[in-house]
Design a binder for these strands. Structure first.
Ligand SMILES: [Mn+2]
Ligand SMILES: [Mn+2]
Ligand SMILES: [Mn+2]
Ligand SMILES: [Mn+2]
Lengths: 215, 215
DNA sequence: TTAATAAGTTAGATTAATCTAACTATTATT
DNA sequence: AATAATAGTTAGATTAATCTAACTTATTAA
């Protein structure tokens, strides 16, 4: 069994490795806000446990075993977020910190029950995929709104960041997952977009558009 | 803020002190399954933090502050148990181990939401009172079934132990909180009782009757 | 291609939580 | 009252997770 701390390292390893398939001690250190020597020791430990492949001065890679265990923690995190939103009435901007703690609970029955009550959801409240019970993730390929072109009609499918501030910003403008957007124009100067949805028109900065994934 | 470990000591202190208002290092050691020297160090630490009054070789007593913090953890435990039973469909014999972990979650909003969804329950699934947000507990004085007399008609209000085995034993006999019982006879030899309820008659041993609280 | 910067490692210290072994104090039994 | 048993304490070790300081390797920029 992995400790609470080890679980947090596994999760960070998984998330930081999604693009390159590997990550660095430095990136982990920044992401977890834990100093590099501490991360270094933990990599040795996780390597001992067969959860990562680690050699001095090289990037760190999760093993298959490590990947699966990480995915199962992320599964618990995302099921929890979904449960909090769908069954308890929280907003999508309120659930991350609670899920960050609940994800460490050891009780298959607890998460199986959530899964059942939610009717086996495939994505969490931010549009991120929920790994299945075997740790398998089905990635949908969404496009950042910023890469769309004038005139396109798209549906908001996910957000790539779920900070409180950003989600509240979206709430304030009535932007939620599933909403249909039409791109009216794109400002060549700063890349901001004028989009219409729900019978209104808003201008969204490039920084925002990059974080909105659409289908 | 208290650590996960400290919270478990506080809770044990509270529970073990309910009759005498104080408890011993030995009782804590047994209850927590932690060796006495470890408990001894922790009492010094909690004393430093102003949560217990502790002097060498004397029983340990929670301070008012300690009592309140303990009650608030117990509140989270019992709200969680109630939520698991009422909102998630668990049986009263399944919830203790999950609540034992969930009670340590730091998120007032999470427990406030449970409380609200449960419509501010006063007792948990085992009939134990749920402390209010200020740590106040309203104790109802129930009587052990074993102290009742022949012919009495009573209602099952709480159980004093919530082990898996015991609760499954009650489940198997259709005994649940709120059920009406009539005492048909008491066996003078071993104190076992013949009770009727829900159109049937069962014989319950003294050991069982002592653990059933009735009103 | 050297020098500077960034990334990574090693060594050694610290804190929290636990243990065992050995000792001391209190309580119960003869 | 003496002895045995139980409860409690002290001392010292261990493990997990963290840190700072100092050093090394790798990468980037002159
Ligand atoms: Mn989250
Ligand atoms: Mn999420
Ligand atoms: Mn319980
Ligand atoms: Mn209970």
């Amino acid at each position: 069994m992995n400790s609470y701390t080890e679980e947090n390292y596994l999760k960070a390893l998984f998330i930081l490795s999604t693009e390159a398939g590997e990550t660095t001690v430095n990136a982990l250190s920044k992401s977890l806000e834990i100093k590099m020597p501490t991360v270094n020791s933990m990599m040795k430990k996780l390597s001992e446990k067969g959860l990562v492949n680690y050699e001095s001065y090289k990037p760190v890679k999760l093993t298959e075993k490590g990947k699966k265990e990480a995915a199962l923690i992320i599964r618990k995190h995302r099921l929890t977020e979904m449960f909090l939103v769908e069954k308890m009435g929280f907003g999508w901007e309120q659930v991350h910190d609670i899920a960050e703690q609940v994800e460490h609970i050891k009780s298959p029955a607890f998460f199986d029950k959530m899964d059942e009550l939610l009717a086996y959801p495939k994505v969490d409240p931010h549009g991120s995929p929920i790994p299945d019970k075997h740790g398998k993730i089905v990635w949908k390929k969404y496009t950042p709104l910023s890469e769309c072109i004038k005139g396109q009609a798209v549906v908001l499918a996910a957000v790539t960041h779920s900070s409180d501030d950003f989600l509240k910003f979206l709430n304030a403008r009535g932007l939620h997952l599933g909403i249909s957007l039409k791109i009216k124009s794109i400002e060549p100067f700063d890349g901001s977009m004028v989009v219409s949805y729900a019978k209104k028109t808003e201008t969204l900065s490039l920084v925002v558009c990059e974080k909105l994934l659409v289908a």
